[in-house]
């Protein structure tokens, strides 16, 4: 009975706080007018037309997708190298240090990090502030823990030390082992890390708003400005972001399925 009540209330909360806002925004993006009523009135597609005709929004979305993709790619590489190094070196204090270092960006609020970055890389002769490279760097640091966590769990479950010994005794070179055994077996961790980091980078606002300039604005930054245009327009712009998030999530899952990762039953909960 208690179990049922708990499930029910969880369902209601999810419905209220997650589904309803998204649904309202979706509805709002097709509404002609939304002022003083519970639901918008009239049906129109013009907000979407406006959205795609404004180069600022298209460019910002392109920039966001670009930054998020690079973040996933680079963090994936960093992630694989780091978990490999930590597992191979087998030094306990190094592991602890590693755990601490990857947790640090979670403990520091993005605002603090953004301020620090602006202060550190803004010199009169040469400034990185406003460039996409600085934002990329910020996103890399900010999202790395979420790539490393599942990878570390994956690596631990793999018992790599023994697999490596088996492989080496069969004559495999380090490169052969990495491409034929290590990376294929890290795909589950890599995928769940990729989903997390991509979504985080795509929707990240605090760092982006402080670090980017007009040429490197990402979508959440321009989206924030959209609410000053009109409600319907802002709803359409938001819907687009949600759509891209879901599409990329689906894409990653499809990739995972496409690569046919059936060899291992590694379940990744962490």
């Amino acid at each position: 009975m208690l179990r049922r009540a708990l499930w029910l209330s969880a369902g209601v909360m999810w419905f209220t706080y997650v589904l309803t806002p998204i649904a309202l925004i979706l509805v709002g993006s097709f509404g002609e007018k939304w002022f003083g009523t519970l639901l918008p009135t009239g049906f129109t597609m013009k907000w979407y037309g406006d959205l795609f005709s404004k180069t600022m929004y298209v460019r910002a979305m392109t920039m966001s997708l670009f930054i998020a993709s690079l973040t996933v790619l680079i963090n994936g590489l960093i992630g694989i190298c780091s978990v490999y190094a930590v597992s191979v070196l087998r030094v306990r204090w190094l592991r602890r240090a590693f755990d601490f270092i990857i947790l640090l960006p979670i403990a520091i609020p993005p605002v603090v990090m953004g301020l620090g970055l602006v202060q550190a890389f803004n010199w009169t002769s040469f400034s990185l502030v406003g460039t996409w490279q600085l934002l990329l760097g910020a996103h890399l640091v900010y999202t790395l823990p979420f790539m490393l966590r599942p990878l570390m769990a994956n690596m631990e479950m793999l018992q790599w030390n023994i697999l490596e010994e088996a492989g080496v005794s069969l004559g495999a070179s380090p490169l052969f082992l990495a491409t034929k055994v290590l990376i294929p077996n890290l795909i589950p961790g890599l995928l769940s890390g990729a989903v997390m980091t991509f979504a985080m980078s795509l929707g990240e606002f605090q760092l982006a708003v402080m670090v980017t300039g007009s040429s490197s604005q990402t979508y959440p930054v321009v989206l924030y400005q959209a609410f000053y245009v009109s409600t319907g327009f802002a709803c359409a712009a938001t819907t687009l972001l949600v759509l891209f998030s879901l599409l990329s999530l689906g894409g990653v899952l499809f990739l995972g399925h496409f690569f046919g990762f059936r060899g291992s039953s590694l379940a990744l909960d962490s």
């Binding site: 018992q159 023994i162 088996a166 492989g167 080496v168 070179s173 055994v181 060899g263």
Partner: peptide, 27 residues
């Protein structure tokens, strides 16, 4: 180890989980 040409069987099998039985033997 790589050039010693020794075959090793481990306590916990240490099969490569991403490879089939055939590919494990073929490794």
């Amino acid at each position: 180890v790589r050039n010693r040409q020794v075959g090793i069987v481990f306590q916990n099998y240490a099969l490569f989980p991403n490879l089939t039985a055939f590919e494990n033997v073929a490794f």
